[in-house]
Design a protein around this nucleic acid. Structure first.
Lengths: 366, 366
DNA sequence: ATGAAAGCGCTAACAG
DNA sequence: CTGTTAGCGCTTTCAT
């Protein structure tokens, strides 16, 4: 009962796998329909609605009723069908969350924040990944909204026309996270990337660097990166130290890419004396490059990153960066959502734009 | 219309945030009920079921009908309510996915794999994070199954009794990923962590190390880590080179923790000449520690990790590790799911256990 | 504190 | 190819 097998022709998944099979024909047949409220009601000799009330822990239920129902529930192994419940009650306890990426460790942290709040509630997360593509985001928005979720959290202010339309019409909370430089549809909570860019420009100029470069990644699909860079270069200009060199890599931000891109920039512009990176993984890669190439930091080259990712703390040298409150953005978004849900329907709720603080971490690299 | 505001009393989220508010009372009132099939049917002068068919792109629809319906749909801004559809058709196009963590970058990669396959289909992912806790997993399983998902993907073979019961009774595909050392409820797809452990034992002994240590993290809540470690130590024993020291850190695996734990082990057991780590971020931390402490690798100390995470490629030295096919596990799981969904209901489907290959990356650190 | 009736918005199963 | 008739399993509303 064993053999070899290849699966997944469609995708680039051509590794050979060992497949063990064991028949389960029996268990496949048994299609004993899942018990419903009706079954429980019949077995316990009460009405369906009473069972429903017990399941939902509605107030005012006698102990005897509850006991009868619970016994029958257990006996049948009944579990409620929330799809039916959602239709009847017109509410789903589902929170749609759309992030542009999940490889970029920034977003898992945000999701963790959201989950940490939601896990204590009845709400569940439905996830969509847009891959920094407005068109893709639109499809996901449309798809997720058709589930009639209790709310939606998505990233940034930039959406397709149709997305914006759908989101504006959506009656439940719409929370745009990560950014603060824009107008929310409903609620936004994030940091100012423009502020981040100019902060770093100020810092580098103050430290006396003259040949300042910028390295981005991911083809700069992320509007927040663009905002950061533009405000960085604008501020440099204002300060009379215009940007010397800009390099936007196509590949996703990563330590390896940071290493390569740093080497690349130094090769073409050896006079560069400071580089601001789109993300911390890039700056770490650059740091490791300098370590190997014998470039002393910050004397020969100054480095700065963005995000304040955890692993920078493990580097031999304290890396200058700007910490973003990722976990807190997730937590705050989820709490705002809950707050809205519990708010009386009558209470007037205005839209709001919440600005979270950035933390400049002056390290030893510039 | 501006002011300061504090939100989130419940959580440790005590940073001050700036809040901008602008009234939207008007848009709050408008509760113009979302249009339904009936509305579209009336406007276009056809039956509801015809509208339904057009929306679902059922075969055999005349161009005129389609046109009429599409016009009305657009005019009303109709979007289907999938909750109702799911109830009527008894199928949801929802795939439940439960992972133990999302901070551990291994799981985002798996999710990416799943998403890359699912994004081309009508299926959507509902996410649960169990935090390596069987009890929590049980709650999530129960909760997610009540949405009647089309399938469920979860991590490992170890589940609570009730979880196992619920999953066995679940009529749709149940896919257990990441591990291969166990019996699947339905389908499993993963690597053998036992094999990984003994592979590394063989390697280290072959290289002549005598004082071999092991460092784990996360309080070893992950059963796969335990399997790896046990098989590692057992194999060492067999080879006559028993483990010298074992250190299981409580904190989550991270580069910083790797640095600290390595230093800790060397302090208490300076004779240690090789360490096998639970995860690559730990080994990277250890490597950086050695770099700073002037410990030469592999002469003074040999290091080995597990997983083959991308950033090890950026290290100045090639780190010995074992690569796991994370993306492919996600892809394969999703493809198997789709395969099952498209399989005729009559086709007998057996359960299967799919073993994916590990890749031993012999580097320069041991 | 419990129940009866009605229906949420959609699709399955049959007609024609 | 299009329509009619019944529900899916639950909750709402209104009684009692």
């Amino acid at each position: 009962m064993q053999g070899f097998h290849r699966i997944g022709s469609a995708v680039n998944f051509a590794v050979a796998c060992t497949l063990f099979t064991n028949d389960r024909a029996g268990s496949q047949m048994r299609k004993l329909a899942r018990p419903t409220l009706k079954d429980v009601a019949q077995l316990s000799g009460v009405s369906e609605i009473s069972v429903s009330r017990v399941m939902r822990n509605t107030p005012n239920i006698s102990a005897t009723l509850r006991k009868k129902v619970e016994d029958a529930t257990k006996a049948l192994g009944y579990t409620p069908n929330r799809v039916a419940g959602a239709l009847a009650s017109n509410s789903t306890d589902l929170l749609a969350v759309i992030v542009p990426s999940i490889s970029n460790s920034v977003f898992p942290e945000v999701l963790d924040g959201i989950d940490s709040v939601l896990s204590r509630t009845r709400y569940r997360t439905v996830l969509g990944i847009s891959h920094y593509d407005e068109q893709r985001e639109e499809e996901i928005v449309e798809d997720l909204l058709s589930w009639n979720p209790s709310g939606i959290i998505l990233t940034g202010f930039e959406h397709s026309l149709r997305s914006s339309q759908l989101l504006s019409d959506f009656p439940n909370p719409v929370i745009e996270i990560m950014d603060a430089d824009g107008s929310p549809i409903d609620i936004s909570i994030g940091v100012s990337h423009q502020q981040a860019g100019s902060m770093m420009a100020d810092h580098l100029v103050e430290r006396g660097y003259h040949h300042i470069g910028y390295i981005g990644a991911g083809g700069e699909r992320a509007s927040r990166s663009v905002k950061r860079r533009e405000s960085f270069t604008n501020r440099l200009q204002e300060l009379g130290v215009p940007l010397t060199r800009m390099l936007i890599e196509a590949g996703d931000s990563s330590v390896v890419l940071g290493k390569e891109s740093c080497s690349r920039m130094l090769q073409s512009q050896p006079e560069t004396d400071a580089i601001f990176f789109d993300n911390d993984d890039l700056v770490v890669g650059a740091y490791l490059h300098c370590l190997q190439a014998g470039i002393s930091i910050p004397e020969n080259l100054a480095l700065a990153g963005f995000n304040g990712l955890p692993f920078i703390d493990a580097m031999p040298m304290k890396i200058t960066t700007i910490r973003t409150p990722r976990l807190n953005m997730g937590i705050a978004a989820a709490e705002l959502f809950l707050q809205r849900m519990s708010a009386s329907k009558l209470e007037p709720v205005g839209s709001s734009r919440i600005l979270m603080p950035l933390e400049f971490l002056a390290g030893e690299t510039c």
